[in-house]
Amino acid sequence: MQTNPFENADTSYLVLVNDEGQRSLWPATIDVPAGWTVEFGPEARQHAVDHIEAAWQDMRPRSLVRAVEGEAA
């Protein structure tokens, strides 16, 4: 039986980030998709999750933050 590679505690993970500042937990054994870059890792799953929680405080995409800040100005 094949396990979900995104939930395997024995796999190394990357933290990916896109142009909108969104992060993704990504198995290091799978190619990084277009539009994403490696921000952290490879590292143990929990360390990668901890990095995401520390680095991604505002879940809104950058474009939305800019639009909202532009309206407030």
Results as ranks from 00 to 15, higher is better:
residue 23 R to T: 14
residue 22 Q to A: 12
residue 61 P to H: 03
residue 72 A to N: 08
residue 17 V to Q: 13
residue 39 E to Q: 12
residue 59 M to Y: 05
residue 55 A to V: 06
residue 23 R to L: 13
residue 26 W to V: 11
residue 58 D to M: 01
residue 55 A to N: 06
residue 47 H to T: 13
residue 59 M to A: 09
residue 5 P to D: 05
residue 29 T to H: 08
residue 46 Q to E: 14
residue 24 S to Y: 07
residue 68 V to G: 02
residue 1 M to T: 06
residue 46 Q to G: 03
residue 25 L to C: 03
residue 57 Q to Y: 04
residue 10 D to I: 03
residue 22 Q to I: 14
residue 10 D to K: 14
residue 16 L to Y: 03
residue 3 T to Y: 02
residue 41 G to S: 02
residue 44 A to S: 09
residue 34 A to R: 08
residue 64 L to D: 09
residue 10 D to H: 09
residue 63 S to G: 04
residue 40 F to H: 11
residue 63 S to F: 04
residue 9 A to E: 15
residue 21 G to Y: 12
residue 46 Q to R: 13
residue 70 G to S: 14
residue 2 Q to R: 07
residue 29 T to E: 15
residue 37 T to M: 05
residue 50 D to F: 00
residue 46 Q to N: 13
residue 37 T to E: 09
residue 63 S to H: 11
residue 8 N to D: 15
residue 13 Y to S: 10
residue 48 A to V: 06
residue 9 A to W: 05
residue 61 P to T: 04
residue 26 W to K: 08
residue 39 E to R: 10
residue 40 F to T: 04
residue 19 D to G: 15
residue 33 P to L: 02
residue 10 D to R: 07
residue 49 V to T: 10
residue 71 E to D: 13
residue 20 E to P: 02
residue 29 T to K: 11
residue 33 P to A: 01
residue 59 M to H: 07
residue 8 N to S: 08
residue 55 A to Y: 02
residue 65 V to C: 08
residue 18 N to E: 12
residue 28 A to M: 10
residue 61 P to E: 01
residue 41 G to E: 00
residue 72 A to G: 03
residue 34 A to N: 08
residue 11 T to I: 06
residue 54 A to G: 01
residue 17 V to P: 05
residue 60 R to G: 00
residue 37 T to K: 08
residue 64 L to Q: 13
residue 11 T to R: 12
residue 53 E to A: 00
residue 47 H to S: 14
residue 48 A to G: 03
residue 29 T to R: 12
residue 2 Q to A: 07
residue 34 A to G: 06
residue 22 Q to E: 14
residue 18 N to W: 10
residue 39 E to W: 00
residue 12 S to Y: 06
residue 54 A to N: 05
residue 55 A to W: 05
residue 34 A to Q: 09
residue 3 T to P: 05
residue 42 P to C: 02
residue 18 N to K: 12
residue 2 Q to P: 09
residue 29 T to L: 09
residue 68 V to M: 15
residue 50 D to L: 02
residue 16 L to P: 02
residue 21 G to V: 14
residue 50 D to Q: 10
residue 53 E to W: 03
residue 36 W to V: 07
residue 66 R to M: 15
residue 18 N to R: 08
residue 71 E to A: 14
residue 29 T to V: 11
residue 41 G to C: 01
residue 9 A to F: 09
residue 47 H to P: 05
residue 52 I to Q: 07
residue 47 H to E: 14
residue 40 F to M: 06
residue 7 E to T: 10
residue 40 F to P: 04
